[in-house]
Amino acid sequence: MTPAVEIRDLTITFGQGRARVKAVDSASFRAAPGEAFGIIGESGSGKSTILRAITGLNDDYTGDVLIDGQQAQKPRTKAFFKTVQMVFQDPYGSLHPRRMIRATLAEPLEIHRFDRKDDRIAQVLNDVGLAPEFAYRYPHQLSGGQRQRVAVARALLLEPRILLLDEPTSALDVSVQAGVLNLLDRLRRDRGLTYVMVSHDLRVIAHMCSRVAVMTQGRIVEELSADALRDQRAETEYTQQLIRASRGTAHA
């Protein structure tokens, strides 16, 4: 089966001359349609940089980004964004502070000339568990969890098949995180979405994803199943260390 998302030898460098660093060093993975694929790594490991390259927010990369087996064009076309959408880490930063939620949600519909805007907005708000009145709020009137639900709603409006999730719950309390994770999981199953999810939190990744790539210093050092992660069957020293730290047994 053709993978929904595939990256091959993706390399991204930042800076010039002596300050040149490889943020991502020939990374490759495949995510099958309907699968939740996870990337775990610590700050600066390059995991979020991969997502930004897939979306074309940064198209200064070498290697291939394939969506449904097709090479993604540089720069990305409008049609691309109807297939691939992204949810950002910080719900406080990803919603325009001066625009009403309705304006934020209407935007993708205007750009792609969708009809029945108000119906679609009410429907998508319902899908993410928010009452229709939330359309008439400003971001500062919402809690972190509600904002992240709005961000998910925005990503869903264009009815994409692939959702990139950049630490979608790391800014939230655990009790709020549980609700958002359940929502994301349900949406994937109901709509057959493909997820590529990035996180530093092993618990979140193991819960949400079936397969996980472990990144450190720009390289994918290991790919393993979530079951292997839970059973602590990691091959590389780094992954084992990560698992130990996450289980809270790293110190006396």
Binding site: S175, A178, N182, R203, A206, H207, R247
Partner: peptide, 22 residues
């Protein structure tokens, strides 16, 4: 109890997380 349950477990697979109803 609710806080503990809302945390994704590392040792087993659960279908759905428990969301604390405040």
């Amino acid at each position: 109890v609710a806080l503990n349950e809302s945390l994704p477990p590392l040792d087993r697979k659960v279908a759905e997380l428990t969301v604390p109803e405040h």
